[in-house]
Design a protein around this nucleic acid. Structure first.
Lengths: 254, 254
DNA sequence: CGTGTTCTTGAGAATCCTCAATGAAGGTGG
DNA sequence: CCACCTTCATTGAGGATTCTCAAGAACACG
């Protein structure tokens, strides 16, 4: 089974077998972490690079009044602290939401990897740029979409991101995120999050039972949520429908 | 007078005189653009790199119902589309908010610059990471801060960012952003934005007159807005108070 | 079969929105 | 310099959304 990281990078950037092997080797040390555990704390000047191998995690900050703001969801294949040393310290924390397997790579090994394999460095950079695009989309959702559309949009995004790493079918995925975690990511209260989910269910837009989410009519959910997948940059250009050719070569997509 | 771009990069990453000269040379072509003009449209596969030289701009998206969401403010020294080719197309647009001078660099010249001057490439990367941190902070504000604190926080952020490029005193700056632009960046209505500003004025937290913002008691505003400047990464570490030494050398800050 | 977490519901209150209108500021042409 | 026009800021009022508090139900786990 291909690691989710390699799957994710390979979709957006061409990687050679050589690159894949190097990645697989470096990410050998996998640690299992229970739910609701900090992987990285605010202020850390992390000397490791951490990747989510399985499970869900999040970036978050705690405010003075004790409120928690979740800034991003991390799914298998996502990096936690790729560029932390460039900024000197973490300005937010990372915690698991469920039990997770995480790959921990020493910063030294990682630096060797990226300088020996520029295609990997490039693919990781692209992947970080997509994370930025996701942040922007969350800002759009929080600022200008109704609570219902915001949550629906988030569910669409997770479907697409999990499909990339082979953890979702065409219309469903395991959804272990609690309503409290969803609330902190949406800026809503838990109570309202609950009511929003009920509305989406009542409208027949989603089926959510036993920690599994399935979408009866994906195009209807997309239309409702105003979900345009292009911000995830799964293709090199919105106008080009053919997938990127998989070959080793330059980092640039076009 | 040093260009705002060079000022900004130099604060977070060591640049040699050599680097500075190269930057100055490449950013020679400056274009003047009126207020409320698109600099980059959504979907563009830009073949230029654009930097704000003077004036205010923003990243934004228009939703199907016509609403505008502002995702980021751009101030002098900020890049508009640094890594656009890596993602293939712009997933959002960039527009001026006021009259702006922008430096337009051909993608070709830019690529030559970054490969000839790795310190510049590194500094730009760090700068982009800070933009990410700013996005995250906006998410925190939108999700879990009151409208008053959110706007106050934004005003604190702008003060700090403008100080970096020499466009603010210790407690004031020119503030040409309209309440409509502030509303679209905060996810509030124009009416409520107006009332929030009035509250901040009534509390004596800000003075806003004739497009000029000044802060009578900065630490009070910081405390009110829960503003912790460390996310702007103006120092290499929150525990180290000495500024970064200015010398040419490796990209990494520590 | 208890115990803690998560989900759900009700009700009243705070926040924020929309609509609609007025006032103030700035720019332009005569 | 004034009349006019456009943009921006402000105000009032009623309503929608979302919140908090509080409690009970369902579920998961040992």
């Amino acid at each position: 089974m291909l690691s989710p990281l390699i799957q994710k990078l390979g979709i957006r950037s061409p990687l050679s077998d050589h690159d894949r092997k190097a990645l697989q080797q470096v990410c050998g040390r996998v640690v299992s972490v229970g739910a609701h555990q900090d992987l990285i704390e605010e202020g850390d000047a992390s000397d490791h690079v951490t990747f989510i191998r399985s499970g869900f995690a999040c970036r978050y900050r705690i405010l003075p009044d004790g409120e928690r703001a979740i800034i991003a969801y991390l799914v298998p294949g996502d990096a936690c602290d790729l560029y932390a040393p460039l900024l000197g310290h973490m300005d937010h924390a990372v915690a698991t939401l469920t039990r997770c397997d995480v790959a921990v790579v020493s910063r030294q090994d990682f630096d060797v990897l990226t300088s020996d394999y520029p295609a990997i460095a490039g693919a990781l950079h692209v992947s970080d740029l997509v994370d930025e695009a996701i942040s922007r989309e969350w800002l759009v959702s929080m600022g200008r979409r109704s609570a219902e559309k915001q949550i629906a949009h988030l569910l669409c995004e997770l479907l697409a991101r999990l499909q990339v790493v082979g953890l979702a079918t065409s219309d469903s995925y395991d959804f272990p995120i609690t309503q409290a975690d969803l609330a902190d990511a949406s800026g809503l209260s838990v109570v309202h999050t609950n009511r929003v989910l009920q509305t989406l269910r009542a409208e027949g837009l989603i089926l959510l039972r036993h920690k599994n989410l399935s979408v009866p009519d994906l195009s209807r959910l997309h239309a409702f949520a105003d979900f345009d997948i292009s911000y995830l940059h799964l293709r090199s250009s919105p106008n080009r429908s053919a997938p990127i050719q998989l070959r080793s070569g330059p980092i640039r997509l076009q």
